[in-house]
Design a protein around this nucleic acid. Structure first.
Length: 789
RNA sequence: GGUCCUAUAGUCCAGUGGCUAAGACACUUCGUUUACACCGAAGAAACAGCAGUUCGAUUCUGCUUAGGACCACCA
């Protein structure tokens, strides 16, 4: 009792977490004989302080890690810091008000590095304050070290895997129509596009039929693309337009002849039922052009301006061009009518720019031919919850093109290739980090001609130019599990540790992070790269709205740690809801009120520690046996649920046990027997009570330890128990009829109520109450505790 | 437009084919009983709507509504 504080508070937490952070006590032993349990944690971006969602999901991962250690696993729980890619670049552009297109690549990268230089430390501190038991809080080359996705080591692995895939012919360059972000000046993948309903102008334009001279009306949201129109279509079932079949349309203003065909793509119910097919309207147009073997006309430049194919619109930005052509159509009386509609518009997730479709050469990683394999290996993985598997399967079904992996940006892993003037490609050796845009080609790089190795660079006297493009960040992120398991760095360990055990992640990145990781893992090893996947939902604000800067409802986890403490956050996270099942609303008040439970734990512990634990286990009374059995059952329940990543139901039961069963009923009833001041009980009977008090407390602390490690270890330490090294208890089968506990609870309430009705103090005697038959075994305790006469 | 998830008191969240639908926060009243006023006791308060299956539905099914996620070719 000496060491326990009066209240649980953040001052105590500070001391504990600082010590834990320095201690490195969960170091990973590579020579272990234990089974390895590894968590492929999602590296947070370091350009901003950690978000409440990261704080809480890492608390859950920590519960998983601590539980698995208790179950005898060698746990690998590393912290990664994501420092690559567009978010970092955009942060640097904004913070330092610089543009890479003006100051140049080299200088811009310096600004990026400046932006992330102190963010990493802050992130680590935040996690430490939450009591997260990472394998290590130190950087280095040891297994489980803190790693950075922009470190030479990480980038080396990204490049090494690329080099291998490239030589295997799984990566190809192709000129295709790409999603183009004109703000960021780069190609982006389908998965980086989101759709927004934007208001746009829907215009009905008059076209002429060459053969009959008659007019037709075509609706479009992209009149500036009339110049790229390759075909006019109507639905084959559309009777009213049947007469157009085989005729030729003349495009307004541009006066080009366009064939008219019947095609099921046109919906007779929409607009006028006639569609102009352009070569850059959206991705469906692109498919259509391929199918019809039409030659696309590209009218938009990479910077988002119109080119010479757009005639009088040349030089204008897309939106200006749209305005101008509408004016012109009006002027020439070619505009039938105009209306405003909301239009689902593809937007770049990273920059918010409207996506354009532009033809350019980019690298692709083959994925279409592996769809079936990925589906197959994903069936071998356990999903928690099972329903999240469908998100992945739906995504695999909908993949229709290979993965564009090159980007035209700056702060990310470079594509390690050099080119000669006569079309040869130099591919360097694996195992080093290359920057082709500023480095000379290595002498020992392989020279490839059309995919075949024909020698080394030193054998050729060519002038080599370094590749300037970089990888999509998912190329880095999708090998995180390979990196933490030391792929291509420590083969012996990798063999032992692969596949990784758990991938924890949000549902919104199933189609990116999870899918791409499965693909890359399969390409490298031919196996599923995880055993388990835990998919969580979203964290929302108090009113269940999404947290966003514009709403101003972002909850800062630092503040909550300071006000309520990590233990309150963690216990709240476990009890408030099931994050794998539904979104969780974060309420600082509710988190704060969890402090009550923490103090209850302290007070119960103080009471139990008023009594010495008998050195020898006494023969326990039937009454005590009942409660021991109860917590044995709770032990089995928690074990089963924890193993399935469910901490919610055990947490609720543990809280109920603490307040109701243990504090209100067991303790109240055995108090007199434990004190035994009037010697109404034998020493044996009293010892049984003391022993049971300690037993129940210790077991409670052990079960709650993964959820609230700080307070439980603090109390256990007073009892000379080191919970950090404790095994998870093996539950014994209950022998008592546990329903008797409910009857006891009812009986106690009845007595308390009666005393209250009669205005009798709870410690005074009361007469006329009969003990039910079922509780006869506990008669003595009940009579003394309640003062029944 | 399609698919998936969710719907229980003022708020958050358990649970169930029939039992008095549990607990927490907030609220009202009473109490200060040898661990605890960050306490104890008592109280008020809920199964989104409609239909179906059933002897019986809050629970199972369908539809509707609302919220969320994802997907899709709407010119």
């Amino acid at each position: 009792m000496k060491g326990l504080p009066k209240n649980w508070n953040t001052e105590i937490e500070k001391k504990i977490t600082e010590k834990w952070k320095k201690s490195e006590m969960f170091n990973f032993n590579p020579k272990t004989k234990k089974e390895i349990y590894s968590i492929d944690t999602p590296p947070p971006y370091v350009n901003a302080p950690i978000h409440i969602a990261q704080a809480i999901t890492y608390c859950f991962m920590d519960m998983f890690a601590r539980y698995k250690r208790m179950k005898g696993f060698e746990v690998l729980f590393p912290l990664g810091l994501d420092r690559n890619g567009l978010p970092i670049e955009m942060g640097a552009e904004k913070k330092f008000k610089v543009s890479p297109f003006k100051i140049g690549r080299e200088k811009f990268i310096e600004y990026c590095k400046k932006l992330i230089s102190d963010g990493s430390k802050e992130t680590q501190d935040s996690f430490a304050k939450l009591g997260i038991s990472f394998t290590s809080y130190k950087e280095g080359s040891h297994i489980g070290a803190v790693y950075k996705t922009d470190s030479p080591e990480y980038r080396t692995l990204t490049q090494s895997t690329f080099i291998e895939l490239y030589k295997k012919g799984l990566i190809y360059e192709d000129v295709r129509i790409n999603n183009w972000d004109s703000k960021l000046q780069t190609t982006i993948a389908d998965s980086e596009i989101e759709y927004k309903d934007l208001i746009s102008e829907f215009v009905y334009v008059k076209w002429k039929i060459k053969e009959t001279g008659k007019e037709i009306i075509i609706g479009t949201t992209r009149p500036e693309l009339i110049c790229t129109c390759g075909m006019i279509i109507f639905n084959p079932k559309d009777e009213k337009h049947k007469h157009l079949k085989g005729k030729t349309a003349i495009s307004p203003l541009f006066k080009k002849e366009i064939p008219i065909k019947a095609h099921p793509l046109a919906d007779p119910e929409k607009a006028t039922g006639i569609v102009m097919m352009c070569s850059a309207g959206d991705l469906s147009d692109i498919q259509f052009f391929r199918e019809q073997k039409l030659k696309p006309v590209i009218a938009i430049n990479q910077d988002g301006t119109m080119n010479k194919n757009a005639g009088f619109l040349q030089g204008l930005k897309i939106k200006e061009a749209r305005k101008k052509i509408i004016e012109k159509l009006k002027e020439k009386n070619l505009l039938f009518k105009q209306e405003k509609i909301t239009h689902r518009t593809p937007i770049s997730e990273r920059s918010g720019a409207e996506i354009e479709f532009i033809e350019m050469p980019e690298f692709y990683l083959k994925q279409l031919e592996f769809k079936e394999e990925i589906r197959k290996i994903s069936k071998k993985i356990n999903f928690y919850p099972e329903s999240s598997r469908k998100i992945l399967e739906d995504w695999i079904d909908s993949i229709s093109i290979d993965w564009p992996i090159s980007r035209r940006r700056f702060y990310a892993t470079e594509i390690p290739l050099w080119y000669s003037e006569n079309g040869l490609v130099a591919v360097p050796q694996q195992g080093k980090y290359y920057k082709p845009w500023k480095e000379k080609v290595p002498e020992n790089a392989d020279v490839l001609d059309n995919g075949k190795i024909i020698g080394k660079v030193k054998d050729f006297k060519h002038k080599w130019t370094g590749e300037e493009r970089i990888f999509d960040t998912w190329m880095d992120s999708s090998i995180s599990e390979l990196y933490i398991l030391k792929y291509k760095q420590d083969n012996e360990f990798f063999k032992k540790a692969y596949p990784a055990t758990l991938r924890p992640q949000g549902k919104e990145i199933v189609r990116t992070w999870l899918y791409y990781t499965l693909l890359r893992g399969y390409l490298e090893t031919g196996q599923p790269c995880f055993k388990d996947v835990w998919v969580h939902q979203h964290l929302l604000d108090e009113k269940a709205r999404k947290m966003s800067k514009s709403l101003g409802n972002i909850i800062n986890p630092q503040k909550i740690v300071e006000q309520s403490g990590a233990e309150a956050i963690r216990f709240w996270a476990a009890t408030e809801g099931d994050l794998s099942k539904q979104d969780l609303s974060v309420s600082p008040q509710r988190i704060d009120s969890e402090k009550k439970t923490l103090n209850k734990i302290l007070n119960v512990s103080k009471f139990v520690m008023l009594f010495d634990k008998p050195k020898q286990k006494p023969k326990t009374e039937k009454f005590d046996e009942l409660f021991i059995n109860y917590i044995e059952e709770l032990t089995e329940f928690s074990d089963k649920k924890y193993a399935k990543y469910n901490f919610h139901h055990p947490a609720l039961k543990l809280r109920n046990f603490l307040w109701e069963i243990f504090a209100s009923h067991y303790i109240e009833l055995v108090k007199s027997r434990a004190y035994n001041q009037n010697k109404k009980f034998t020493k044996k009977e009293s010892d049984s009570a003391k022993y049971t008090l300690h037993f129940l407390l210790e077991r409670f602390l052990t079960l709650a330890y993964p959820i609230i490690p700080q307070i439980t270890t603090t109390i256990a330490k007073e009892k000379k128990i080191n919970l950090l090294k404790q095994e998870f208890p093996k539950a014994k089968k209950p022998k008592s009829n546990l329903k008797l506990i409910d009857e006891l609870v009812n009986f106690n309430s009845k007595v308390w109520k009666k005393k209250k009705d009669k205005s009798i103090s709870l410690r005074n005697e009361i007469s006329g109450i009969k003990i039910p038959k079922s509780l006869k075994d506990f008669e003595k305790d009940l009579i003394v505790a309640h003062g029944l006469v």
